[in-house]
Structure formats: C-alpha cells, structure tokens
C-alpha cells in the first residue's frame, strides 16, 4: 500500500457573487465536496472543461485560495488550520507550476533572482545558493549562463523550464502543475512532459497535474480524476479510465478527443448543449441535462462517488 501524501476531504469553495447592496448574498460553488488522495511518487491527473473547478482545487491545495469548507491533509496534518509559520513550512514542501510562464515571472528580475526567491523567503543560507541555483538550472536543461538573463530573452518552452526550476529548487515533495503545457507548442509540450517525468524519477516528486488536454493526462498521470461543474464524477487508474470510461460524461469527453489516427474512424458522442453556468447548476446530477442515459432519479438526487469495479464513479447507472 502506497503512503498517502496529500488528502483532500469534502473540499468546498464558494465565491460570493456581487449583487445589489441589500440583496441577500448568493454564492457560486466553484467546487463542491471534492475528495482526492495523492500517493507518494504518483501523478494524479485532474481533467475537466472550463468552469469545472480543477484550477480552484489546485489552488486550494496550496491555500492560495482559502477553501470554504473541508480538509486538506498533508502528511497527517490539516493545512486549512495552519498558522502563518506552519503554512510557510508547508509551502516549502508543496510548490506550484503555472500555465502561463510569461505571466508568472517578474519581467524586472533576472532568472537567477526569480529562482532565488524561494531561497530568500525560506531563509536558506547564502552559502548554499550558488550550488542550488546551478544544480537546479542544469536539472531543467538550461545552463548557468542563463541565470543572469531576463525572462523576455527566453522562448515559451524555456520559460516553463525556469518556472519548473523555481518550483523544484527547494526540493519539495509535491508539485501542483496547473496546465503547465497548454500554452506551449506541440513539439515543445513533449519536451516539458519528458522533463517532468525525469524530474519525478530523479527527485521522488508527486504531481497533481491539472489539464484540459486528455491526451497529455493519459500519458503522464497514474490516476485521473474527471471533474464536471465542481464535482469529481470519476476517479480511476489512467489506463482503465481511458480504455473503459464508466461515467457518461467521461465517455463523451474521451470520445471528443480528435483522433490522430486517420484510419480509426470511431463514432463520436457529440454532447448536446453547453456546460451550464456554475452559478445556476442543474439540480440532482449536474450532468443530467446533457446525458443520454438520464433517468428520473438523476433530476432530483445527486449521485455520490461510489466504488465500482475498484474505481470511483458518481452516477446512478452504477
């Protein structure tokens, strides 16, 4: 049995909607009752379409967004009640890689300064800096000369390498990567994915890999959670999930990936309608208005995530 590193229990995040001054406050449930477990050395993929709450979940894991309810347990302790100093120690262990490498770097700082930022805030003795900086930048496939340059001198792929370098310089245990390759070109995407996989092996990292690109997730993740409108609808081993999706939404999602093989003409499931707005989600199962198997019960009762064939699915069909 692998050890649990990070566990999310019944996580919920409400955002208050701005309305008129005296109107009763109304809320949007960005995520609603999410349960996840990340094991040591594993990559947990979170996939879903826009508005499904995958990025909010990722940010709640680091308390970049304060969850409204629920627990995030890291190495046995609930981080949602951490004090400032405990939180700081926690952030040394859990780092984040962002989607837009351009936007996530201060244009006025050199690469060296950007990478040294975590060293400063966690008071690493200056004597170790040089060693850490050079070894880390080499780990991500750049070299020492690059340390004194500015972000605008680099291409997108190189910037993402620097973003990864910043995340691993403190040698954390977990990296939450929010769409780390979606802003990159296809050929560069695979470079970065290879790099992430190498680093995982080299540094014993665990990843939470958030992406809308199912192909990428299929490749990199060991287990995958599929989210729809703030809820996890299916959670399974990557291989099983892609070979035999159970939830109707997962089925549609996987069949919508454009096939790269010209001879494989599979009949696609084209979902009807749009993703409903998270501020007025449908009652019952949130997927029922678009689901071809929707029954009466789906309109009223929200299905819970339950064990089916050794995996977890939230659907009344099972």
């Amino acid at each position: 049995m692998k050890t649990k590193l990070l566990e999310v229990k019944d996580l919920e995040k409400r955002f208050k909607l701005k309305k008129a001054v005296f109107a009763p406050p109304s809320f949007v449930h960005a995520i609603n009752g999410v349960n996840l477990v990340l094991h040591e050395g594993e990559t947990l993929g979170i996939v879903g379409e826009s508005g499904c709450g995958k990025s909010t979940t990722g940010r709640c894991l680091l308390r970049l967004i304060e969850p409204s309810h629920g627990e995030v347990i890291f190495e046995g302790k609930d981080i949602t009640h951490f004090t400032k100093s405990e939180l700081k120690a926690f952030r040394k262990q859990v780092q984040m890689v962002f989607q837009d490498p351009m936007d996530s770097m201060n244009p006025k700082m050199t690469i060296g300064e950007i990478m040294a930022e975590p060293l400063i805030s966690h008071k690493i003795p200056k004597a170790q800096w040089q060693e850490l900086l050079t070894s880390t930048i080499k780990l991500v496939g750049l070299n020492e000369d690059h340390l004194s340059r500015y972000p605008h001198e680099f291409s997108g792929g190189q910037k993402q390498r620097i973003g990864i370098a910043r995340a691993i310089i403190l040698r954390p245990k977990v990296i939450v990567a929010d769409e780390p390759v979606s802003a990159l070109d296809v050929s560069v995407q695979s470079q970065i994915i290879n790099l992430l996989q190498d680093l995982q092996e080299e540094l014993d990292l665990s990843y939470v890999f958030i992406s809308h690109d199912l192909g990428v997730v299929e490749h990199i993740a060991h287990r995958v959670a599929v989210m729809y409108l703030g809820e996890v609808v299916e959670l399974a081993d990557s291989e099983e999930l892609f070979r035999d999706p159970l939830h109707p939404y997962t089925k549609a999602l996987i069949s919508s990936i454009p096939r790269k093989d010209p001879d494989e003409r599979k009949e696609r499931i084209i979902l009807k309608g749009e993703i409903p707005s998270p501020s007025s989600p449908p009652a019952g199962c949130k997927f029922h208005p678009r689901c071809e198997f929707a029954a009466e019960i789906c309109k009223t009762k929200r299905p819970a995530l339950k064990q089916v064939y050794g995996r977890e699915v939230a659907c009344h069909l099972y």
Binding site: Q95, M105, I120
Partner: peptide
C-alpha cells in the same frame, strides 16, 4: 493580477517581499 504575484505567494514569500520586490520595480 499578474501571475508572478501568485507564483511568489505560492513559494511562501512574505508580504513585504512581494511589495518591495514584485510590485515596486514594476
């Protein structure tokens, strides 16, 4: 709203650091 402010927070930077090193120069 820039990403690098959030990035700096995720690293564990202090408030004064973020203001002095991230906001001011920009």
């Amino acid at each position: 709203s820039s990403g690098y402010i959030e990035a700096s927070r995720s690293i564990g930077s202090s408030h004064s650091w973020i203001i002095m090193r991230q906001f001011l120069p920009n």
